[in-house]
């Protein structure tokens, strides 16, 4: 099992029961959910977000992790992220685009991650779109 940064670790520790409870809820609706695979997703895709929150916005890390966990769990339940996903573009967008927005991510994490995720899903539905170009935009 991959380990996570101290930043994410401290948030997970503080909200452990709540996060475990949310996963248990999701598993009730979808008995096939693989806990270990979801934990890998948290380590690979949510940890970079926690680390991307600017040092001056440290108090926002909780909100970022909370939003990312919530949205991530929904996407994971639908097979859109994680090892079973058809493509890993959403995770790539979170890692590469969301992390680059720094202050925006800290200020409105739910809105940003939702918009970015919907954009990737819609782009994937369009033919002839150079997705890597879009995902590289903020740099």
């Amino acid at each position: 099992m991959p380990r996570v940064s101290d930043r994410l670790g401290s948030v997970l520790q503080a909200t452990r029961d709540e996060l475990n409870h949310r996963f248990a809820d999701a598993r009730r609706a979808n008995a096939g959910l693989d806990g270990q695979a979801f934990l890998s997703f948290v380590a690979e895709s949510i940890d970079p977000l926690a680390q991307a929150v600017p040092a001056g916005n440290g108090e926002r890390i909780h909100s970022v992790v909370d939003a990312a966990y919530d949205i991530g769990l929904e996407l994971f339940s639908k097979g859109l992220v994680g090892g079973q996903a058809r493509s890993r573009q959403i995770e790539a967008a979170w890692r590469e685009v969301a992390t680059a927005t720094g202050g925006l991510l800290a200020a409105t994490p739910r809105r940003l991650l939702a918009a970015l995720t919907n954009a990737v899903v819609n782009l994937e539905g369009e033919g002839g779109v150079r997705r890597s170009g879009w995902l590289g935009w903020p740099r």
Partner: peptide
Amino acid sequence: SRTFDVADLYRG
């Protein structure tokens, strides 16, 4: 065990 626990990510 098939327990899900986010503590697995930070506990050593």
